Amino acid sequence: MLTTGSPAPEMVLEDTDGQTVRVSDHQGDHAVLLFFVRSTSCPVCTRHVRDLVARRGELEADNVRVLIAVPEDRERAARWKARHAIPFPVLTGRDRSPHELIGLTRRIFGAMQQSGSVLIDRHGIVRHAHGATLPTGSYDRQGIAAAIASSTQD
């Protein structure tokens, strides 16, 4: 898992339209919150994404862009995004899972995909990194809020 205070690694992902998305392209403009769902079939993860959607105005006011990363392929990600009317870009990996890029691996006999969140400030520094094996612990709303508050001080 990434370490708070470290430079964010280069992450090249793909959105549901097949377009390349580089997290570093946001650097200088605004902070980026990446939320990594365990699976598009996970109701807990979907509930967390719904909370992010409900907080969209607040996040935009804090100059934070939300990106949702899923371990599935682009077609499945697109169906999930449409079914739940998710306004944020939903991203997949090109060569491997986005989760693997930051160290959110499969645990418990290799079957349970970890989920979590990463906040990268506009300077490209990781301000928040949180992961969990159980999806109920993956969305650290208070930790994200504190990281956003501290990154807007800069």
Rank of each mutant, 00 (worst) to 15 (best):
S6I: 10
S6E: 14
P7V: 01
A8S: 15
P9N: 02
M11R: 07
M11T: 08
M11L: 15
E14Y: 06
T16L: 04
G18K: 09
Q19P: 01
T20C: 05
V21T: 13
V23I: 15
S24N: 15
H26G: 14
Q27P: 07
Q27W: 15
L34W: 00
L34D: 00
L34Y: 01
F36W: 10
S39P: 06
S41R: 09
C45N: 07
T46V: 03
V49A: 02
D51N: 06
L52H: 11
L52Y: 04
V53G: 08
A54P: 13
A54H: 14
A54C: 11
R55D: 12
R56V: 01
G57C: 03
L59F: 02
E60H: 10
N63P: 07
V64C: 08
R74L: 06
E75F: 08
R76F: 09
A78H: 08
R83M: 03
H84R: 12
A85C: 03
V90W: 06
L91I: 03
L91A: 03
R94N: 03
D95H: 09
S97M: 04
H99A: 05
E100W: 03
E100F: 03
I102H: 02
T105E: 00
R106V: 09
A111I: 13
Q113R: 01
S115H: 05
S115P: 11
S117D: 00
I120R: 08
D121K: 06
D121C: 07
G124R: 14
I125N: 12
R127N: 14
A129Q: 00
H130F: 03
G131M: 00
P135H: 11
Y139N: 15
R141A: 15
I144Q: 02
A149S: 14
S150C: 11
Q153G: 04
D154C: 09
